[in-house]
Design a protein around this nucleic acid. Structure first.
Lengths: 217, 217
DNA sequence: AATTGAATTGAATGGTAATTTAATATTGAC
DNA sequence: GTCAATATTAAATTACCATTCAATTCAATT
């Protein structure tokens, strides 16, 4: 344990009883801060402060800020996408099932990871986001393209409202699940919607989609 | 005209034939950069470079970075919200009309201002966004609360799908209109959806909403 | 023509960020 | 016990960044 007491001297600290993976702890704190403040607003020093270590130790563990961001992507963000992707692949062939499992999987994943939605919205989806390349080019496309193609196929068979665009439907899916979380503090406090839970968000998204995909009479 | 040639010397430059509002030009460039890179990633110097002036001149025109952000809010962002707000107020009392006019007004407004969606998504909607206070507390709530209340009222009268949440419906409205724009470059290039236009986005959003709000049989 | 005001620049200033370095203390294997 | 590896700090170093300031040039009055 590092700076916990006022005056740490250089040197390896004595081992503590419950001494877990230090690097992982720091990465957790960094992930949380990146999520809350955005990447460019979060400095190495501010992460160090939060983790009660010196900035130098950040470099000891991660090498550089860039490498820290790489770690964020591969060790924190990618697993979430992979998790959602697997659940969606496991879903039945039916388009409804696909939509349902996407929404459920995403909201499940996000429920235990509050940093994910803001991070995704700011740094992946928004143009110029810092994490876009590594995530979208990698697995993002693998998750998204099949969905789009499925929607297009269903539409060709006349089983999906013609006024919807298959590409935008994918965007819609993502925004219905992530956006409410990323913008929580607005509607929770300013709209006073304190009762809204993850379940409410799931029900809302599914209700809109189940009906919305139908072909108008 | 300033740095256009390699070696500008100090001093007021000779008047040019077409010499328009310099400050407004610079604010336009700044707005564009803030939209593309996010606020904290955009330095005074980078704006100056883009505008081909010195950082010092930025301060001459705007006083400070903070004041530049104030100008961004009051002279560029607020007018957009005001414009949308007015069109929505002018809409009929019917909930459908309200939704339609919100979607159309928002997409109209955004069409000529590509910087708006990313800026709004990153700096207003996302938690910790730098522009949230001045915009949401000001007029944002005035636009959003009545919408929510209207939805709630319709729902009470049994004219809106019970599974939807009135608060989230407002969030949905915003995400359906802004998100596709803010994330354009992803789906345009990586999904190859080059044909998708503002009209496509409008049609898509309205199709989903018109059906989605209905009460399931 | 003289004077004031507006628009610019180059060159400080002080601050903060990322990164490096050398020193130091503890652990764990032999 | 010795010693290499590990974990840690304080103190540079280097690079920007926002901001200020004095000097300079052009424009507009008078």
């Amino acid at each position: 344990m590092p700076l916990s007491d006022q005056s740490r001297k250089p040197g390896r600290p004595p081992k503590q009883p419950a001494d877990v993976d230090r690097r992982a702890q720091i990465l957790d704190i960094a992930t949380d801060l990146f999520g809350r403040q955005g990447i460019s607003a979060t400095t190495m020093a501010s992460i160090a402060r939060e983790a009660q270590i010196t900035p130098a130790l950040m470099h000891y563990y991660f090498g550089s800020r860039d490498k820290l961001l790489n770690a964020l992507v591969s060790e924190r963000l990618r697993p979430v996408v992979a998790e959602v992707g697997m659940k969606v692949v496991d879903a039945g062939d039916d388009m409804r099932d696909l939509v349902r499992s996407f929404v459920r999987a995403m909201i499940d994943a996000v429920d235990s990871r509050p940093w994910f939605p803001p991070l995704w919205v700011r740094e992946v989806l928004s143009d110029g986001g810092k994490l876009r390349g590594p995530l979208i080019d990698g697995m993002g496309v693998a998750l998204i393209v099949p969905l789009r193609d499925r929607f297009a196929a269903e539409q060709a068979k006349g089983r999906l409202n013609r006024d919807l665009d298959p590409n935008l439907l994918v965007v819609t899916l993502i925004s219905l699940t992530l956006f409410p979380f990323a913008s929580q503090s607005i509607w929770r406090t300013r709209l006073g919607a304190t009762h809204v839970s993850s379940d409410t968000i799931t029900t809302h998204a599914l209700a809109l989609l189940e009906r919305g995909l139908e072909i108008p009479a």
